[in-house]
């Protein structure tokens, strides 16, 4: 029973971090129909800046700097590179490949700087744990869940109540009509990219915190697991991203716990399980759990 509770909590914490990343994918996809392959390297950039700066600025200052810098970079990538491309939703794959190029550049540079090191981010939680009755939880996991919940709540509120959120939803509904109403498409899009970049940088902190040992050059690959989370929920649905992330986080946590029982299926099953779940869901619902079935107009 304790094992089950532990696993549930671990899955929840993992899901909360994935949700930050997956929400970024969804925001970007909603705003620009692009699948951002540079998301992992942006996450890594945020983590790296926090790690480098925390001795000078303190953790909070370094985190703020990392988040802002990553947001700025994401905005620049969109404005300077992607918005130059033809803005046809059907040509979005070109922009997607451009993000792959950006990812290669960023990852190469960061990997060269990080080398084989494990960077500490100087987070305040350290390796402290808390005990609630039979369950022991690391502080960092509690922080991950709490911060994610707050931030995601704030993002949803932005979507719902801010002018930018309204513009974004309008532009996603009908780009042309939105432009005719005077919505600045370029700026709306760029802000969406900035927000997604900021979320990714924030996620880096929790990915590098205890029980992980620190930030390494492969930390960015975590974004690959947020892909199934985003798809599972439906690429254009923020709520879906949230649900998908929880499903993926829980799946992974359970597979890790019961790996020894599943040994027949080979080692490293926890890396594959999210994808298997995704394929199964797509078989039943080709547009994801919360994806709207697009109405076809003849």
């Amino acid at each position: 029973m304790t094992g089950l509770l532990d696993t549930l909590l671990a899955g929840l914490a993992l899901g909360a971090v994935y949700a930050l990343v997956a929400l970024g994918f969804v925001i970007i996809f909603k705003a620009s129909h692009v699948m951002n392959f540079a998301h992992g390297s942006m996450l890594l950039l945020g983590g790296y800046l926090t790690a480098v700066l925390h001795e000078h600025l303190g953790f909070a200052g370094a985190l703020a700097a990392g988040v802002l810098a990553t947001a700025a970079l994401a905005g620049v990538v969109d404005r300077v590179l992607l918005q130059r491309l033809p803005q046809d939703p059907r040509a979005a794959h070109v922009a997607t490949i451009v993000t792959i190029g950006v990812d290669i550049l960023l990852v190469t540079d960061l990997a060269r700087r990080i080398g084989g090191d494990l960077l500490s981010l100087g987070d305040p939680w350290g390796d402290r744990v808390r005990t609630f009755g039979p369950v022991t939880v690391p502080d960092s996991r509690l922080a991950a869940v709490a911060v994610s919940a707050l931030v995601i709540g704030a993002v949803f509120a932005l979507f719902r109540y801010s002018r930018w959120g309204l513009s974004l939803r309008c532009a996603a509904e009908d780009t042309e009509a939105a432009a005719l109403q005077g919505i600045r498409l370029g700026r709306t899009r760029m802000l969406a990219w900035c927000l997604a970049g900021a979320l990714a940088a924030l996620a880096a902190v929790f990915l590098a915190a205890f029980p992980a040992t620190g930030l390494e050059r492969t930390t960015g690959q975590i974004a690959l697991k947020a892909f199934p989370a985003a798809i599972l929920g439906g690429l254009a649905s923020p709520v879906g991203a949230l649900a998908g992330s929880l499903v993926i986080g829980l799946t992974e946590a359970f597979v890790i716990t019961y790996q020894s029982d599943l040994h027949v299926l080979g080692d490293g099953l926890s890396d594959v399980a999210p994808y298997v779940v995704m394929v199964l869901v797509l078989l039943v619902r080709p547009n994801g759990l919360f994806g709207a079935k697009g109405a076809a107009r003849v």
């Binding site: 892909f227 199934p228 985003a230 798809i231 690429l235 594959v272 995704m278 394929v279 797509l282």
Partner: peptide, 29 residues
């Protein structure tokens, strides 16, 4: 093909990503 016939565009892209990971796992196992 049950997936490839129904799932479209970017969704299929990520769904096929699954094949790479599952395939890699199978190759090792």
């Amino acid at each position: 093909s049950p997936v490839a016939g129904r799932v479209k565009g970017m969704y299929l892209g990520i769904a096929t990503l699954a094949l790479v990971f599952i395939g890699h796992h199978l190759m090792l196992t």
